[in-house]
């Protein structure tokens, strides 16, 4: 019974995603259905290839990538509240981009990605090193510390940007949006897709490391190497997404949590569902952002922030017994997301 049910969820998710993707291709300022596009001088196919398709691919990669990165981080850290956002990965990647802009003003996307990756990896490692040193009893302490750490890094980024008058340039990477993703910017696909494949190949290794040091040793898995490798993959995925579309929070936190409630924590069993759900989540948020105040559009980070905080609070309430500090965790996140719009 179990197996049929598992497949069914995956098939439903894949079907939903396909429908939404097709639908999303036809939503926009330029109407692809009528003759309006031709009148504007652009062929329908051009609009599709220049703007809609890269955008859709970026959305899918963002959703897939962030939820897989979150899934890996949650497993490796044995904590359901660790994610690129709550593990300082995202803010470190932003700092990396700023450093790239400062030191290499004419940097290409690839070199910025390299900076973001190195920085994201360093930040994540510092965070992991720190939480391993201080053995927290309370699971909520770990993401709280991560968010504080992330805010400190974010503060440094803002300060540096202000100092060197880069605030304007940096804002592109602070708030995630897909509006600027156009033809030629398929890089995100090349960056994220191979990483997802690697994550899938090593899924069982991540699971075993998530069971702890003694289990890993008993099964002959090198704990340190897999931990490092897994976090490297998560940081690389996050950095790739931040470089192309900017910061997109919450997905890595929420999607793996919801999927785990239904499918359990065996990564081989849940990775594909987490990837599909992440893509659906971002796609829906993007559609909302494009429809609500059409012909203008809202940054994806705003929609995700609102939807995400509601879902996050719901997950918190489900996962934890009631307590004041747990609720306040939700508020901290919400205010951060709203702060990001300005």
């Amino acid at each position: 019974m179990g197996i049929i049910k598992e497949r069914k969820i995956t098939v439903i998710l894949a079907g939903t995603l396909t429908l939404l993707s097709v639908f999303s291709l036809f939503v926009g300022v330029i109407d692809l259905r009528g003759g309006a596009a031709a009148a504007g001088g652009l062929g329908r196919l051009d609009v599709l290839l220049i703007s809609r398709l890269p955008r859709l691919l970026a959305i899918l990669c963002t959703g897939v990538g962030m939820s897989v990165a979150g899934l890996i981080m949650q497993q490796l850290c044995m904590n359901k509240f660790v994610s690129p956002t709550t593990g300082a990965t995202l803010s470190s990647a932003q700092l990396g981009i700023l450093l790239a802009l400062l030191f290499m003003p004419r940097s290409t996307l690839w070199s910025r990605a390299a900076f973001a990756f190195a920085s994201a990896l360093t930040g994540t490692w510092l965070f992991i090193w720190f939480i391993q040193r201080i053995k927290f009893k309370d699971t909520v302490m770990v993401p709280l510390v991560g968010m504080m750490f992330g805010n400190v890094i974010g503060g440094v980024t803002s300060l540096l940007a202000y100092r060197y008058e880069m605030t304007q340039a940096l804002s592109t990477w602070l708030v995630g949006h897909f509006a600027l993703v156009i033809r030629g910017r398929y890089e995100i696909v090349y960056l994220v897709l191979p990483l997802i494949v690697i994550a899938f190949i090593f899924a069982n290794h991540f699971n075993i490391v998530g069971m702890g040091k003694t289990f890993s040793k008993n099964l002959g898995v090198n704990y340190g190497v897999v931990l490092f490798g897994g976090l490297t993959i998560a940081a690389a995925i996050t950095a790739s997404i931040v470089v192309v579309v900017g910061s997109v929070s919450y997905i890595g936190l929420i999607v793996p949590n919801i999927v785990s409630m239904f499918k359990g924590d065996k990564i081989r069993g849940s990775l594909i569902d987490a990837a599909l759900s992440g893509a659906i989540f971002v796609l829906v948020c993007d559609l909302i952002g494009r429809v609500v105040i059409a012909p203008y559009e809202l940054p994806i980070e705003l929609i995700i922030g609102i939807l995400g905080s509601v879902l996050f609070v719901a997950i918190l309430i489900r996962r934890l017994s009631h307590g004041r500090k747990h609720i306040s965790l939700g508020r901290v996140k919400a205010s951060r997301a709203i702060g990001g719009i300005q």
Binding site: G2, Q75, M78, N204, N207, I208, G210, M211, G212, F215, L219, G220, V221, S260, G264, D265, K266, G269
Partner: peptide, 17 residues
């Protein structure tokens, strides 16, 4: 183990080596 695994999934990890 802080992980939602089924008995089968857990025992199957014994075959990993």
């Amino acid at each position: 183990i802080q992980m939602k695994l089924t008995v089968w999934e857990l025992v199957a990890f014994g075959r990993f080596p």
